[in-house]
Structures are given as structure tokens and as C-alpha cells.
Nucleic acid binder design. Structure first.
Lengths: 226, 226
DNA sequence: CACCTAACTTACTACTGGTAACTTTCTCGT
DNA sequence: ACGAGAAAGTTACCAGTAGTAAGTTAGGTG
């Protein structure tokens, strides 16, 4: 598998570069391997090999060597961070799309209970579709990645915080609760997703509806007495 | 497993055993190093060195060698599991104690908003007191430990699920929501704790009160219109 | 007493994240 | 035009970790 003679054909730069096994600066400028390329490869590896994927496997899948990965995306914690942002964006997008196709505009207009259910269900389905990525991102032993988990949350919560601020202001109520509420809700969604994925056989819609019920009416439910 | 209580005939049996550096079966029966001893050592190491503590460090702190740790508690995932159970128990205890000293009995009688705040605050304070243990337990890359995180949740949720079932039944409502609600609430608490520990300078009581507000009245707040 | 088993310790494997050192190509000032 | 230095790779390596196999001694048993 060692084709040392390079001059035979003139393959496209990509081909030759990715197979370059000899050290030294590559001919013809920089490798067209950027951050996104590596992140895509990482997602593929994680989807294939599970959440325990190693940096080396990512480099192999991306067709580059390890130091390239470190140059493009940074260390393992940074990789998890970047993937967390992607996943969070996908969740936000899915939720927005679901809300729009349902006739709800989500953030700007009044939030309804129905919209809340839709939002939660969309989130569950994204987690379901990217199961191992979710595990990879929410895992991580070092303190760095523990904070990275917060970053995923932050990315998810930023739009939610904005929506909550507007929502509360619309009722003339203090918006100070917006941030803890947003983090709390995201935590609820993450844990529920984990439970749903591994221990429950209910439908996503059922779980979403039940969580929406809690978030909308609160613990005492519709008719409270205490 | 019985810890063979050796007579005190030989002074410092423990001392000599723990310092035994020569291979072979120890004199005077089995080492009185049981699971609890190792778990205690693990907690000390984590409190001292942070969440990145290694098995080897745990073994050293416990005064034993690595295979002993593997024999007594199992691999790294099992260790995290066991510590998770301990932490969860401590949380439940703290919450119950706070509720009782506040005149509330928590699970059996009617739950009030005030009791909910107390409950949440007690949880936050336990996490604060065992910061690195919390990080250690909620971390972990492998799928095993990811499920272990669920185990922590499960241990916390079991009493809560029971309470919720009773609570809902008391209102003549379906108790099917109890399990997802319990997991969701625990997730909310975990994420909120993380946020509070690392990014917020509010008091535990304030955060607890704000989360209780959400869980009690729901998103629309006291006066809803939508 | 000889031998087998229990209960350790030592020493090792396999792997991982991360980095230093080296090699080649490009660029640019003189 | 040409040589020095910067740029952009690859190789080879290091340190540390989870987990285990093999070796060693004390205790029990026919």
C-alpha cells in the first residue's frame, strides 16, 4: 500500500495530499482540510464506533494525521466542545422548524402549551438520531469537558433565555428567572432524553407531552388545592 | 464477606498489612480492607486531587494495590457507580432532614411550595459540599458510565417517583407522569447545580426559590393568559 | 508432611491524549 | 537567481491510565 512514486499520474490535489505519507510541506499550498472536515469525520467515527471514539480514529477517518487534528480543532475537550455546539444548533433548528411547520413561530409570539410539546418532541428526536454523539458530548471526565457540557447547555439555552425574557416581560414579570429556568429546562430535557433512550419504551410524543404538562402547569397540575 | 476480626495479639496488624510490600497471602487472614474502605479512600482522593483522580491514586490512598481495588469495587465504571449511589443517598438524606427540621415531612404529607424550595436548596448545598465528587460522578466517557449517570439519577428519583405517585393519586390524577417527571426534575437539578457552581454568584436559596417557582406554577407563572 | 487453594503483589500489556523533533516546500529579501 | 528562514506537514516518541496475567507466600486439608 505504499505507492512511493508520485509522478505517474497527476491526481487531483486532494487525492495526493491525503495520501501523502512523506514528511515535509505538501506541494501546492495548504491541505484543504479545515475544521469542518475534521468535525464531519469525528461525527462519522462516533456514529460508527460509539462514544468511545479516539482522536486517532478521527484523524484516520479524516485522512490526516493526529497533529493536524490538534491544529485544526484543538484537543479532545475542544473537539467535544465543537461537536456540542453543532448538536445544540441542530436541536435549536429542529425545534424552530417543527414550530414553524406547526404554525407557531416559537420565540417571538406567545408560547403555547402545544408549542412547548412540539419543542420538546423535536429535541428528543434529534437526540435519538444522534445517539452516540449525544453520549460523546455529554460525557467527559476532565473538568474541562465538564464545563464543555455546560457550553452545550449554554448554546441551547441562549435562544431559550431570550425567549423567556421576552415572555416574562410580556407579563410584566421579572426576567431574573430566565437564566436559571433556561438551564434547568435544558437539564430536564437532557436527562429525560437519556432516560427515554435507555429505559423507556414510550413514544417521543407521549414523553414530550408529559414533560410539557409539568413545565406548563407545574407540579400541582391543572387544579391545585394546597 | 466477613471481616475476620483478628485478635489484637499482634500489635498493629493493620499497619503491617497495609505496608506489606512482599507478595503472598497476608498473615492472619484477610486484609480488613472492604468495599467501604476503598470507597472512602476514593472520595478523599477526589476531594483532594479533583475529578480526574485515577484508580492507582485511589489504591495508594487506600493503602492497597490496584488489583485489590478491582476485586473490591470493580472497574472504573463500577467505582463511579458506587460513588454515585453514595452521593444520591446523601442528597436524599439532606433533603429529608431539611424538610423535617422545617416541619415538613416531605414525601408522605402534602407537598407545599415552601417545602419544594427547601428540597432544592438542600440538594444544591450537597453538590456544593461535594463539588469534585459530583463532577467525577456525572462525568465519564464510556457508555457504561453514561448509564451510570442514569443510575445516580435513578437512586435520586426512586423516592421522588414514589412521592409523585402518591401526590398525583391524592388528586385523583394519573400517576403515569411520575417517572418522566422525576427524571426530568433530577436533570433540572443537576444542570442547575452545575450552572450555579460555575457561572452564577446567586445564593443557593435564590436559585432554589426560582426553580421552585417554575416547578410549582409552571412557565406561565401565577397569572396566565395564553 | 505434601499439596492445593486463597489472597495478595509485582510486572506487564494495550492504548490514549498530547507533543517534540525532524523533513520538505514555499517565500522573499538581497 | 539564490540561500535563509518561515510554513506546514509527518514520524516517532512520552507520560499516564485502565485493566490483567503471572508470580509468591500463608493457610488449610487429606
Amino acid at each position: 500500500m505504499k505507492q512511493t512514486d508520485v509522478m505517474g499520474k497527476a491526481p487531483t490535489t486532494t487525492e495526493r495530499r491525503l495520501n501523502a505519507r512523506r514528511p515535509g510541506r505538501p506541494v501546492g499550498g495548504q491541505l484543504e482540510v479545515d475544521r469542518e472536515h475534521v468535525l464531519d469525520a469525528a461525527e462519522r467515527v462516533i456514529a460508527r464506533d460509539g462514544a468511545g471514539a479516539s482522536i486517532e480514529a478521527v484523524a484516520l477517518e479524516a485522512g490526516v494525521t493526529k497533529p493536524i487534528v490538534y491544529d485544526r480543532v484543538g484537543g479532545r475537550a475542544d473537539l467535544a466542545d465543537a461537536l456540542a455546539e453543532r448538536l445544540a444548533d441542530r436541536m435549536v433548528d429542529a425545534a424552530n422548524q417543527a414550530l414553524q411547520s406547526g404554525g407557531q413561530t416559537g420565540a417571538d409570539t406567545g408560547l403555547t402549551r402545544q408549542a412547548l410539546t412540539t419543542f420538546i418532541e423535536a429535541n428528543l428526536q434529534v437526540v435519538d438520531r444522534h445517539r452516540d454523539l449525544f453520549l460523546y458530548v455529554t460525557g467527559g471526565t476532565t473538568e474541562q469537558t465538564a464545563l464543555g457540557r455546560l457550553k452545550l447547555a449554554e448554546r441551547s439555552t441562549t435562544p431559550m433565555t431570550r425567549a423567556l425574557v421576552a415572555w416574562r416581560r410580556g407579563f410584566g414579570q421579572s426576567a431574573e428567572v430566565a437564566e436559571p429556568w433556561a438551564f434547568g429546562i435544558v437539564g430536564m430535557l437532557q436527562m429525560s432524553a437519556m432516560w427515554w433512550l435507555t429505559q423507556s419504551d414510550r413514544s417521543a410524543r407521549d414523553v414530550a407531552d408529559q414533560l410539557a404538562e409539568l413545565l406548563w402547569h407545574g407540579l400541582p397540575g391543572g387544579d391545585r388545592s394546597a
